[in-house]
Amino acid sequence: METLSAVEGFWDNATALTASADHAAYMIHVILVALMMTVLAPMFYFLYKYSAKRHPKEKAENITHNISLELAWTIIPTMLMMVIFYYGYIVIKDNRTMPTDAKHIKVIGKMWSWAYEYPNGKKTDKLYVPQNENIILDMTAPKGDVIHAFWIPAFRQKEDVVPGRMTQLWFNATRLGEYDVECTEYCGDRHSYMLSKVVVLPKDEYYAWINSNSAYPGGPDTSSEPMGKTLLTNNGCISCHSMGDETLVGPGFKGIVGRMVKTANGEMTSDRAYLKDAILDPDKDIVDGFSAGMMPTSAGVLSEEEVNQIIDYLSTNK
């Protein structure tokens, strides 16, 4: 598979299962291309041999049956289909048999960002995992959100993230590096930007980081950083809102506290109360030019205190 590794991290040893998944994919295609050739090769031959030029119509023969041939092309493909089913089965069996000794990490997919929560409560916007360890992702979307799908191409792993349900997938990353995470279930305007990374770290580095105060491995100690900033990053807010004044999906954050906004209910001040509503009940007073349903509610995701911290931080962003 080396030749295909033009795409970042597409290796056959990225996890414990990728080699067998690729092997199964390869075998399935070999069988099927061979099967296809049993149709196409005779067809090309007959088209040549029995074309009207070489085989005038007086010579045409009516052959309507041949029981043994017909049995052969029923039974042999059936058996081959079962072989392919078997290859599909073993891969899915490995993929879906959750190991019992795994670390669980929560994945929350919402419009249009991924958030990860570790057992000790730490939150990040990239998924950091230790090398050579079984990881189970417990994935869900907020109830008011839509369906997403979590895909790591390099790990050959994909599962939908459904609001109100929990789905799982597991892997054991064997190769250090950064791999792409993509959303594959169509989820709206920024579907194609709902990207993230999974970063495989050496075990000791991972454990050193997870118990530290830094937001990301090798990063500065963020215990002194405003909590609001961390919250904005880790909850994926800044994938739709810029810290400047440009509009991505939602309005930019620069000077957002205290400015006047036009809504369907008239002009109002974007004060603390307004912003709190905007976070917890986003469709209430939408600023003209933006549409309802774009921003998921953070009710139940952020606590009262966290909302206040965010607004505190935003008011420093003049």
């Binding site: 998944a21 994919a25 399935i28 392919i84 599909g88 089965y89 891969v91 993929n95 191409p153 994909k158």
Partner: peptide, 12 residues
């Protein structure tokens, strides 16, 4: 289409 019926491959 047949390859897509093989769940393990379809997963990717």
């Amino acid at each position: 289409g047949v390859t897509l019926a093989a769940i393990g491959f379809d997963n990717q």
